[in-house]
């Protein structure tokens, strides 16, 4: 194929854009999960206001109310940081192009596609993932409603749907069916669970209201 993609694809960055720190910090032991695969922060260039990278950079993310330190290249998406570095695998990688919604998380309370956010760019924002919305062993009212209405089959889209629904209900506490259909237009399901999802979101709205609007 005669590709007309940018011609310098295979070329490594040069000049000002040095690849300092890139790779040097890895490869030994592979790193344990939970703190990031690119362990050696000392060898990674620190992020400054002006520039960071292209090699691994220490960053701090505020995830589910807690600061989390990790070291990633700037090109790592928030989704891949969550899944591959932090073992937070509720958000799924499905289309990986900001279309399907399976990777939905909340940033400052608003639903976003974490596949289309750079992890480094998510610093300073309150990131909420499905792992953080309920106490261990308990279900958030939105999750419970999904269960009650069988709004899941294979379940791979479900965490993204739950997070999109949670964000939607924060903005629309009294939705009707039409609102739900418009408000969850950013998520796709392949098994065909939409009938259940509609009812689940309406039920979750009622539950959240009787609980005094405590949506997480």
């Amino acid at each position: 194929m005669r590709s007309k993609k940018d011609p310098d694809r295979s070329r490594q960055a040069k000049g000002n854009f040095s690849r300092r720190g890139f790779i040097r910090g890895v490869g030994i032991g592979g790193g344990a999960l939970g703190t990031g695969l690119l362990e050696n922060a000392a060898e990674a260039a620190p992020a400054t206001a002006a520039s960071a990278g292209p090699g691994p950079v220490p960053i701090t993310l505020n995830i589910n109310g807690k600061p989390v330190n990790l070291t990633v290249e700037p090109r790592v998406t928030l989704l891949d940081a969550l899944r591959n570095r932090l073992d937070l695998t509720g958000a799924k990688r499905v289309c990986d192009r900001g279309t399907c919604g399976a990777c939905t998380v909340l940033m400052n309370g608003k639903s976003v596609y974490s596949c289309s956010v750079l992890a480094i760019d998510a610093q300073g924002k309150a990131i909420e993932t499905i792992e953080g919305i309920a106490e261990p062993g308990k279900l958030h009212p939105v999750s419970a409603a999904f269960w009650n209405h069988d709004a899941q089959q294979c379940g791979y889209c479900t965490p993204g749907f739950v997070m999109a629904a949670k964000g939607f209900l924060a903005e629309h506490p009294n939705p009707n069916l039409e609102d739900v259909e418009h408000g969850l237009g950013g998520n796709l399901c392949r098994c065909g669970t939409y009938m259940g999802v509609r009812q689940a979101v309406l039920e979750a709205a009622r539950t959240l209201k009787t609980q005094g609007g405590k949506n997480g």
């Binding site: 940018d6 310098d8 694809r9 960055a13 000002n16 854009f17 690849r19 890139f22 992020a47 206001a49 002006a50 520039s51 960071a52 990278g53 292209p54 090699g55 950079v57 290249e73 700037p74 090109r75 750079l118 480094i120 760019d121």
Partner: peptide, 25 residues
């Protein structure tokens, strides 16, 4: 995705200084 340097300027002056004269930079 090719690796890149990430810049996070706080001002337009900084930001425009980080851009280049040709596409691809």
């Amino acid at each position: 995705m090719q690796a890149f340097e990430y810049s996070n300027p706080a001002s337009l002056k900084e930001a425009t200084a980080l851009l280049a004269a040709s596409w691809g930079e």
